[in-house]
Amino acid sequence: MKKILGALAVVLLTFQACKQNTTNSEASSSNTNTMDIQVSGEPETQKALAPPFVQEPVGNRGAKKIIVNLEATEIEQELADGVTYKFWTFNNTVPGTFIRIRVGDEVELRLKNASNSVMPHNIDLHAVNGPGGGAEATNVAPGKEAIFTFKALNPGLYVYHCAAAPVALHIANGMYGMILVEPEGGLPKVDREYYIMQGDFYTKGKTDEKGFQEFDQDKGVDEKPTYVVFNGKKNALMGENALQAKVGETVRLFVGNGGPNLASSFHVIGEIFDRVYVEGGSKINENVQTTLIPAGGAVIVEFKVEEPGEYILVDHSIFRAFHKGAIGKLVVTGEKNPKVFNKVK
């Protein structure tokens, strides 16, 4: 009997120990500490930049109160050369303005809906802990403003989007963007940073059919896009809008996928990602050729460019790249580096 009790006690103790272990590791990896980070100093209004550009890194600064102003707008602009579409946006760009904060920051998000909007809009930020990610708190009629606050508890790169009904339509029309929550002390320093989001679009006319194109609900439901593009327009990152870097620099791309439907097989032709923050989170994978970005998900990739030339960004589901627009360009200038790459004959 004693033996049995003894064994039982051991089992119980082990069980207890295991339990404690799990709670400990949970605590270290997530919210419990970051909730206690104090904010200090004057509130700062976040600067709004159009993609592919992003704000300065947070660096070593302490946690602060940050005011973010976003405006929901409905605008007609080009989806491809000679093709127009009625986009719904945050701050008139697809994707919407990048938001850059650090863990522990307290954000006051002010969402205005333009007075000439037809629809109500709201915002669900995947970086928020709370019902609807803010959607419920910000559902806002045309001409009105909604404000809510949240504390950034989890570092990472997150998608935000409009979640007003019908959600699929709001996302299909381009209502998404990203928010970066840097860890304490900031992300490691790099030479260049860019902001890119993939999105699929559904038009009545065929790909590249000129003129104004209406949204096609059937194609949306069937998940058969007429366009798959980076930054809201076919060729948005081509020609004079191509991304730039110099030989020897390290480039960091914040890449998101607004969807609404497709997952992206993100790849840069002629480069290998030295580091990938898998799914935009804290795990780092190294030496990756192609990384998968789910709809409503994101990734941070970093790579050093060694050789001048043109590097093509694609969704490696390759028909999308060369037929539907999921293509962009990074132009690298500088000295040739024959040790790394050399055409012999």
Binding site: S115, M119, P120, N122, N139, V140, G143, K144, P166, L169
Partner: peptide
């Protein structure tokens, strides 16, 4: 569905374009 979404964004004293 869109109409219900619109109505849900309203308060009784709201005036909209």
């Amino acid at each position: 569905f869109m109409r219900y979404a619109f109505r849900s964004s309203l308060k009784a004293n709201y005036t909209v374009a």
